[in-house]
Simulated scan of single mutants.
Amino acid sequence: MENLKEKFKRKLAENNYKLTKQREVILGTILGNKNWHFTAEDLFAAVKKKDEDIGMATIYRTLELMQNLKIINVHDFNEDSRIYELYSEESHHHHLICKKCGKLVEFSDQDIDYLESELEAKYDFKVTEHKLRFYGYCRDCK
């Protein structure tokens, strides 16, 4: 299977973009933090340690491009900020979000996948995506 860096390079080329030095640093930072849920500001702080010349505008533009190319997912878990994570077709998952500290917990559940199949059959409807989020309080905050 194609690794994510190669996939990103291929998708850039297919859409007439180049893998610039800045995009490579940003992608490398994201790939270096697997299973990382991050804000644009988190990414900016991590990237600044590698390249002080990359500005916040470059971070935002690259995140938007990566989202459009399905390299990352964006989540609006709250009205304060957007949360990003690597896109993965192989590991569809859902989130538990702590309303107090903002902690995110990923989970997968076969019953939810079964429910999706049941809904498709019952309503003659093809589900192309779904997002499930539970809000509450984590072990430390409850």
Rank of each mutant, 00 (worst) to 15 (best):
L115N: 00
N3I: 05
A45M: 12
F8P: 02
M1H: 05
F38R: 06
C141A: 02
I26K: 09
W36E: 01
Q22P: 00
R10G: 03
K11H: 08
S81A: 15
K122M: 09
N33H: 15
L31V: 06
I71D: 02
Y87V: 00
Y17E: 12
L115T: 01
Q110P: 03
E64W: 07
G28I: 03
S117A: 08
E106G: 03
D80R: 14
L31A: 03
S88W: 03
W36D: 02
I72L: 10
N33E: 11
D140Y: 06
E89S: 11
L132H: 02
R139A: 13
E6Q: 13
I72N: 03
K34R: 10
E24L: 10
L86I: 07
D111P: 04
K18T: 14
Y135N: 10
D113Q: 14
C98W: 08
D42C: 09
H130D: 08
V47G: 09
L104P: 01
K126C: 00
C101G: 00
K103V: 12
E52N: 11
G28H: 02
T58G: 11
E14W: 01
E79R: 12
Y17A: 02
I72E: 05
M1C: 04
N35Y: 09
K9P: 01
K131W: 01
L43P: 04
K50N: 05
F38L: 07
C138H: 04
K142R: 13
K122T: 12
F8V: 13
I83F: 12
H92L: 04
D42E: 00
H93I: 03
D53V: 11
K5G: 09
E90S: 10
L43F: 03
N16T: 01
L12K: 06
F107K: 04
K18D: 14
S108N: 05
K70H: 13
K34F: 02
R139D: 14
I72Q: 06
F107S: 04
S108Y: 08
G28V: 05
S91M: 09
T58P: 01
E106F: 07
E89A: 12
F44E: 09
L119W: 08
E85L: 00
S117K: 14
Y137E: 11
E85M: 03
L12R: 01
A13M: 13
D124H: 12
K21W: 09
W36R: 02
K18W: 03
V127N: 10
Y84E: 04
R23Y: 05
E116Q: 12
Q110H: 10
T39I: 03
I97H: 01
D140R: 13
A45F: 08
M56K: 11
